[in-house]
Design a protein around this nucleic acid. Sequence first.
DNA 1: CATTACTTGTGAATTTATTCACAATGCGAA
DNA 2: TTCGCATTGTGAATAAATTCACAAGTAATG
Lengths: 229, 229
Amino acid sequence: MVGAVPYRTIGRLTLYWRTLRDLASEGQTYVYSHHLASQSRVTAAQVRRDLMVLGYSGTPAKGYNVKKLRMHIEAFLFPATEQKAVIAGVGNIGRALLKFFVGRRPMLKIVASLEVNPDKFDRMILGCPCHSIENAKSVIHDEGITVGIIAVPDREAQYVADVFVGAGIRGILNFARTSLNVPSGVYVEDIDLAMSLDRVAFFARQSLKEDQPASPKSKSPDASKERKP
Amino acid sequence: MVGAVPYRTIGRLTLYWRTLRDLASEGQTYVYSHHLASQSRVTAAQVRRDLMVLGYSGTPAKGYNVKKLRMHIEAFLFPATEQKAVIAGVGNIGRALLKFFVGRRPMLKIVASLEVNPDKFDRMILGCPCHSIENAKSVIHDEGITVGIIAVPDREAQYVADVFVGAGIRGILNFARTSLNVPSGVYVEDIDLAMSLDRVAFFARQSLKEDQPASPKSKSPDASKERKP
DNA sequence: CATTACTTGTGAATTTATTCACAATGCGAA
DNA sequence: TTCGCATTGTGAATAAATTCACAAGTAATG
């Protein structure tokens, strides 16, 4: 169960979990790898490979027990005890995220927000107490927060990251378009909206080009590039 | 210049472009691969490998000409003529995205939004005309829109995707937690906020475990897993 | 001009991720 | 019970992405 969990596997387990949740609510008791696969747009082999990390086996010819598999994924993926998060920045993106995340996971809660703007801090925002960034360290310590979300303007992102790291945060979800400098041991996941949109636009153009090709290079409509592999 | 552009390279080129833009505004005329690398948290070799797709070469001992490299990236990555996008759903996330993207790229514009809610459509929202989703096809056709953003509730996402595809859209940025079913040739990029937060929380816990280990397995503080590789 | 100390571009090696392919298994039908 | 069939788990093969490592090149220096 220890050591070197493939990064992408973690993400896909979330997808499988959602399918299992839905299946359970439909009363299904067993599921095959190929069904989980089709719901997540991966191959059945990929699903089975991913599930290896759980140490739970399905039964041949019957598939996986929906309830048990779901519980194993939860045990692996979700915190055993409540894990707390904080969000820095309650501008447009920050508020949207706050609203989106609130009440989503019982074991993973955003318990505070942080702001530089005195108009915003020292009151509740979307059901969440908003503090001055200057009090970040004590808030994070006192609450035992381990996850930080950065939704501040780009130029403030590194400062916030430093505050987060200094206060003991070990995982950062970063919406700023800045490569954060953090010590090894702190995990950073970037969500770069502008980059994503650029990429979609790029591949959309490519797709159009291939439709009316001056010189059709590809021998067959290759589906392998349509998706993030 | 044709064929098989590595998916991740596209994203990184955006990062390099930002660094080049900043360098240009500082008056720098040349830059080394290792500088671009450090600004994007990749290796210098990675940068040079990525830049190979551009067909532009730097000069040894001098590096890359900031202005020229930037222009080559723009020519490769950005649309030559204005490319248009539409966003479906102007709820919390949708409005935040609209506000975020507006006026960001001169060649890539969100020119319309779509809604099912009659309270919202047929008026301007954040400077952008909002139409009924029922008129989507004509709006998309008439405007020549090629990129669609999905920011609607999960259960409506597939419907919107079908509308998009039917209207000729070739690239979709999907914020719904649904695996969209689209024909090959249409590029989909998913931004799954819940998954990302789960993943950050997971690695944050892992990091904490490794700090106070009952059984320290890893021989050395392995930095290779700190980032999405 | 020759030397030094850097760089770049890229073939090859390596690492990481995915898919293949098949033995082993268990269910259900006869 | 026995057979047939569709499934699982996983070693091995493949594919994709990254890094290594070094020849070749350029600028700066004396």
